[in-house]
Design a protein around this nucleic acid. Structure first.
Lengths: 135, 135
DNA sequence: TTATAAATGTTATATTATTACATAGTGTTA
DNA sequence: TAACACTATGTAATAATATAACATTTATAA
């Protein structure tokens, strides 16, 4: 039995795998040039190689970009299902970032309509505050 | 009768006023270097002068940063009340950005608690989709 | 008025991201 | 398998975004 289409869709190329592994192991969001520095020993030498892999990984939902921090975190929300509906909490002291998985929240936002009755195909929500440790 | 304390709090310095006026008149979010280019005739010559004014304007809620676009928009939500609770819709084709003012949404998010029962002091939400024109 | 905080001016530099072009691998299908 | 389309890679250069460091000036409040 071969590789199913759905598996293929999620199979990563060499550079994508290297960069995903690094992000996935990291306890904190990683910035592009931090990633670059850390994968140079694996042969990835140029920013563009990193950004291309990051773009793809974001596109397929394996990672998310924390927009307010220009940093990337692995998806921990039933892997890849929510690339288009992301929510995070960010501690303003220690910078700890956690992906929020709340059925209520995602339902509320997925169904949110603006004044014109318009629904949206995608959203990103970033909450800020102090984490347990920092309070 | 002098300037009241609350007015003072919202009074802008020269550079802040120049930059706020530009952003406020603009129908679309402006990027820092677009702003710089447009205020050079008014004597603001360096990026840092722009960024300092932007930081302050964001802090006092006169403008908001659209994080996913690195661009700035004037607050149109009962001026400055919601610096810490922002929501926008962004058209992925024409890049039109609109500040969302929905009592329901802001109430829901202000009261949102995560799994640990934690509430947050601040949030930013960006919705993506196609605006009326672009559909 | 004098101390304090806020804002400004200026140069240099750090950080984040893309353009442009050439090459190589992968999957599909005729 | 050959031809094609598509995805990914490699490399150099550069564009776009943002901050550090230091000197000076202006505004505010005690």
């Amino acid at each position: 039995m071969g590789i199913s289409k759905i598996d293929k869709m999620h199979s990563l190329s060499k550079n994508q795998q290297i960069i995903f592994d690094l992000i996935d192991k990291s306890p904190e969001p990683l910035k592009a040039y931090t990633i670059l520095f850390n994968v140079q020993k694996k042969g990835i030498k140029a920013p563009l190689q990193v950004y291309r892999a990051l773009d793809k990984l974001v596109e397929i939902g394996k990672i998310h970009k924390i927009e307010s921090r220009n940093a990337f975190i692995a998806c921990h929300n039933s892997s890849c299902q929510v690339a288009k509906a992301t929510a995070f909490s960010i501690c303003e002291i220690c910078e700890k970032v956690t992906e929020i998985s709340s059925a209520g929240l995602s339902k509320y936002l997925a169904n949110f309509k603006d004044k014109d009755g318009m629904k949206y195909s995608k959203y990103n929500l970033e909450f800020f505050g102090l984490c347990k440790k920092c309070r």
